[in-house]
Design a protein around this nucleic acid. Sequence first.
DNA 1: TAGTCCGAGTTTTTT
DNA 2: ACTCGGACTA
Length: 722
Amino acid sequence: MVEQQTETWRDGLNPEQARAATHPGGPLLIAAGAGTGKTKTLACRVAHLIETGVPAERILLLTFTRRAAAEMLKRAGQMTASPAAISGSSNQHRSTRQFSDPSTQVWGGTFHAVSNRLLRMHGRALGLDPGFTVMDQADGADLMDLIRDEGGYAKGKSRDLRTGGWNDAGLKIPKSRSRFPKKDTLASIYSRAVNSGERLAEVLEKHFPWCKPEAEGIREILSAYVERKRSAGVLDYDDLLLFWKVLAEAPGVGELVADRFDHILVDEYQDTNHLQSDVLRAMRKTNPNITVVGDDAQAIYSFRSASIDNILSFPDHFPGAEIIKLERNYRSSAEILSTSNAVIAESHIGYGKQLWTDRTDGRKPGLIDCLDEEQQTHQVCERVLEHRERGVPLTHQAVLFRAGHHSAQLEIELTRRNIPFVKYGGLKFVESAHVKDVIAFLRILENPRDELGWWRVLNLLDGVGPATTRSFMNAIGVTSNGSEISPLTRLAEDLPAPGGAKREQVAALADVLSRCMEESPALSVTSQIEIIRSFYDPIVHRRYEAPHARIRDLEQLESLAESSKSRERFVVDLTLDPPASTQDLAGPPLIDEDYLILSTVHSAKGGEWDVVHVLHAADGMIPSDMATGDADEIEEERRLFYVALTRAKNDLYVYFPLRYYHRPRGLDDAHGYAQLSRFITPTVKDTFELQPAFTGSPAEEAPLDHRPVAEVTKYLSDLFSI
DNA sequence: TAGTCCGAGTTTTTT
DNA sequence: ACTCGGACTA
């Protein structure tokens, strides 16, 4: 990393970086390879714009996560005289700094967060009630499920559609197993169509061919889904983009919105999708000042409909675009670069950058053959500690893996050895049912028409299931539109016929909700959650086997709310920018401590560490079994591997466990032998130093590995069993 | 109509 | 290990 405390920021830039940072205006594409200082360049560009007189609040910086925006603006702030003007306006609840005048700050954040803000300001012009609530992907899937049940798609309808031909052929229908897509599939189909702009038929054909027989039912559900979101006053992630696009294209208000910004800068452009590129074009119909930064070799979000075409056809979308390539790598040793260059060389698309460095102090990356996952875990721990002893703190080391659960065993071992760690990616706090339940309370307080919120809350009552919930929602006017009286009031005033529910419990619920609505003095979000928990905690105790972990989560949620200005902000922030790591939740105590970073490769995007350990370099893990359908998917997995490798500055270790015990299918505990990841071709392998762990020092390994004995026993018992 | 139990099938990445 | 759906009971 280049020094920052130079006189002016310009001195720290190489010629290409400087040219990009001081580009006068018009469309600019910065094709920045991994580790070429793209964050710095973008931050400098922001600083440059402000120094040349562009008002901070007329700059829009779109990033992939809010964390990235905050980081970039922090760096820009260090370079200019008035740092406060730069720090992002969308500071989240966890941010400790407050700024005097939010109107004089750069707009920074994700597409979704920025859209949320614009729509609350201008949405009315589209007929959109600015009091909308936002739901995440899982909520969307739940709504799909609701509709799916009502329509009886899972049962009767789909069966009717399929039976005919089969009977004629004399085939036995396999016990009418419902093949109708599940809620998550429905949500993905919908999202894919919206984000890529492809028609339903095409989407099914290309990405969900096994769902084609149910196309008609799917179409009906998707239409109903759209309608239900509208009447509930709820937007999903896709709506945020869609409405932003419509807003920007609308005559009158569209110009108003676009004219807010003299300059738009977009980071990680390779991971934007068709819809996002439409948004940008709509925002830049007249003003051509747009800067995008990206690396086609690091495109890893096609599952979210991101399209590599966006970056490849940027010059067509924005005529007159200048392209600046950044190829000088400041991050990694030459040896690490050789390895990563060799990996990406096997792929043949894009702007074909060749990364180089003049560093000469490197060591060859290590490829560590392990007997099995247990040994891999052991090896990682040993190496991590070794590096710490040699002076590399844990925070400067990261362990990367393809899927959230790949680190499960390692986490157990780290805990056992008292090695502190923080994990990014994988299953998230806000996705757990009990947290969602509490958020559902907040959502109906915020937006009493929020059908899904009511659905969750009412279903909590004893003796209340789907049917009673539906009649409740009708009775208090959640679903039946038109009444001026809020469902909250109606629940409190005349309790609906309880059905199977206990009258007192319904009354208690109504009481909790109205206490949260107290206006003078307005209650803090924390107090509201406290009230909700007085009702909900007992339910957790009754419902779950081990309630304590869940109660702790709720305590965390409560304290998370402390720094939150309003209920609206809290709920929106939780869905648009959920805590990304275990650390975000753990609070201050961890901050001074040293801890190891664990992260999915996706969440590691943009990060860099002195020492990087990549787990499970076996076929089936990298590339994932789930993503070997077609050539494009494989290429994306290759780029994913490339992203993992290029995070390393000084030392890189890639681990390959030869044997897996818990093969997904194997109920008979049969193990399987894995293949080395197909991305480690012979050429690539040559760039590594091979370090077979199990032929190492036997004295060290032997006591730790009881497997061989178990193997022999099993072998013999198999032999005799037939 | 709710709640429970069992068997079958699935298992990624994230705003 | 987990979720989903179907069947069964109260």
